[in-house]
Design a binder for these strands. Structure first.
Lengths: 356, 356
DNA sequence: CTGAAAGCGCTTACAG
DNA sequence: CTGAAAGCGCTTACAG
């Protein structure tokens, strides 16, 4: 066996991790100084002569030393990291929220650990507790469940928590929401103003706060116009394309007098409804909650109630860091406005004689 | 002052974090057992009588104890967390990749720390090194820069790294890419097959590997068909809507013989080009790299070369965990196929007489 | 079945 | 300006 064959020492071992890394102790030994002096140089603390500093720097470079923040965190008590739990990192609504939280964290020198609850309260809890075990300094949560008593020992110990997009089950926490009720009411009123009297509503599962708030806005707009709501026009449930497609078709073809317009409760519902409408024999007006990329290019272009997902994330993260900096004023509830974007689909009028 | 006024003790203090939390030592004291026994119960290790375990559990509940994983990590050497650095968490292409990496991490009991490089090599480096300082077990990186020598001390110490979407500047690392060259070649060949001879190409900045690979595919398809490329038809640069809009208009109106078709180099370019084409006086064929939501509903629907972002993420994360489990075979380079999705915009033929 | 001691790699509080 | 000692909250290796 030559020297170039695999050494018997490379038999599958678990990879060495920390053991293989130089520590401050190694740097100190090589530079011939004390541990604390290395710490001073690494952290840019004053009180080291240029010559000593130079020797330490040289040892750091030679050894490839990089401070182990895990150890630092243990001693300092702050991890300089925050957690974000939301429904789905891949969702076009939540992705910009995620990015916005990241930017704020970055501005504060913190890292972001995040994950998807997949709308499962048990998974949310598991993820949140894992983040707590890592001792994140704070938590931004889009709650999937409504019982957050499991967080009480954490908040009691000083964990800052902000709920965003939906309220959580913890009265002491800050909350940042969109005006779901007002936005939906405005969108439905917009359809009514264009002559519609029979309007369908397709939304997310009723245990989701935004779904019921938007439904409430729908009902308020209908009531304000003195219009009755036939319960067969209303459908809450999972936003899977299959269900939304089936429900859209059911509501559009309802007998004896089908709806002439549709209000869709979020981006996923709208995307599927638009596909059904594209193949539907008669025109149906549509206003959707949440904006969609390319919505302006469809025929007709899609009128929406837009919320600002990035602003939701930014506001929540700002609040969180304010708490981390010591603000202990009463918990806040911030509500961000929505915006009606008129593009065409919401301004279609009912065919003559069909709106009665 | 009554008891209900604010106590002078609540004068703005930095929030207590760990200090306020019970430790295993506290639990041991309350349960009247040794520290190691608490550790056994918390970690579900065998060798504790039911009665002792019960006492410990009770103390845990009463104190609201939750194990501090920061301390655990320091001792064990593994953090059970991985890092992901990509261009933009909010981008509809990267968001599903992010989610896919998260799912794999979750399957392996690891948390995900992630962040956006914003296509800035310095920011990428800063983020990656912060993740290394936290001692993530592994790293998935969409590189913004091409010099990753700064990672060498880390990989030497055992850090596993996988580059995804683009190759990195570290030959020892695994790499997962889409077939950018082949996909673009196929898309352009598709346009040629529909009668086009003058085809424009608008892509991302030339320092980005995917941009130049796709351009190479364009040139290969043109060359294979014996078609000359007028360099005024080709534009690489930032994907900001302003630049892409201006370049699209320039290329479409080029004198004396403007292009009859366009190949767009990624999702952001396509979204802007589609907007220009929608208002353009004559029809122009289009094939875009990357699929877009609602692309099937535009008029004409957009023909694309789709890559599977989730599969890129999944493959990269799978590779990473295989390395973490001890696989020390030679670095792999995986190339995933792209898929032509025919929808209409890519099958428009040049107006009679314009294709010469 | 149970626990005391040492140690992970840093920072803190002190002393010189 | 510099450094030795103690300690953050766990796990490891060992002894009883």
């Amino acid at each position: 066996m030559s020297d170039r064959t695999r050494s018997p020492l490379s038999i599958p071992l678990p990879r060495p991790r920390y053991g293989a890394r130089p520590t401050m102790k190694d740097v100190a030994a090589r530079a011939g100084v004390g541990l604390k002096t290395v710490s001073r140089v690494v952290n840019g603390e004053p009180g080291v002569t240029a010559e000593t500093e130079h020797r330490v720097q040289e040892a750091i470079t030679a050894l490839g030393f990089r401070r182990n923040d895990s150890a630092r965190v243990l001693r300092k008590g702050r991890t300089a990291s925050i957690g974000l739990v939301l429904e789905d990192l891949a969702d076009p609504f939540y992705a910009p929220l995620n990015r916005a939280v990241e930017e704020v964290a970055r501005d504060h020198g913190a890292l972001l650990i995040n994950g998807s609850s997949a709308e499962d309260p048990a998974r949310e809890r598991e993820l949140v507790l894992a983040l707590c075990a890592r001792r994140v300094d704070g938590l931004v949560v889009v709650p999937a469940g409504d019982d957050h008593r499991y967080l009480e020992p954490e908040t009691a110990a000083g964990l800052a928590t902000v709920f965003v997009d939906r309220p959580g089950g913890l009265t002491a926490a800050d909350t940042v929401l969109s005006d779901n009720f007002g936005g939906a009411r405005e969108g439905v009123a917009h359809l009514i103003a264009h002559g519609h009297r029979r309007i369908g509503f397709i939304g997310d599962q009723p245990r989701i706060h935004t779904a019921t708030e938007r439904l409430r806005g729908y009902r308020a707009a209908m009531a304000a116009a003195g219009l009755p709501v036939d319960e067969s026009w209303v459908s809450l449930g999972p936003t899977s394309p299959d269900r939304v497609r089936a429900e859209t078709e059911r509501i559009l073809t309802g007998r004896p007098s089908p709806v002439t317009a549709l209000f869709t409760g979020n981006n996923r519902v709208t995307a599927t409804a638009v596909r059904v409408l594209a193949r539907f024999p008669r025109p149906v007006a549509l206003v959707g909650f949440d904006d969609l990329e390319l919505a302006d290019l469809l025929t007709p272009a899609v009128t929406v109630i837009a919320q600002d997902a990035a602003q939701l994330g930014r506001t929540a993260a700002d609040l969180l860091f304010r708490r981390l900096e010591g603000d202990d004023s009463a918990p806040q509830r911030v509500e961000l406005p929505t915006r009606l974007i008129v593009r065409g689909s919401g301004e279609l009028r009912p065919a003559p004689g069909t709106a009665l």
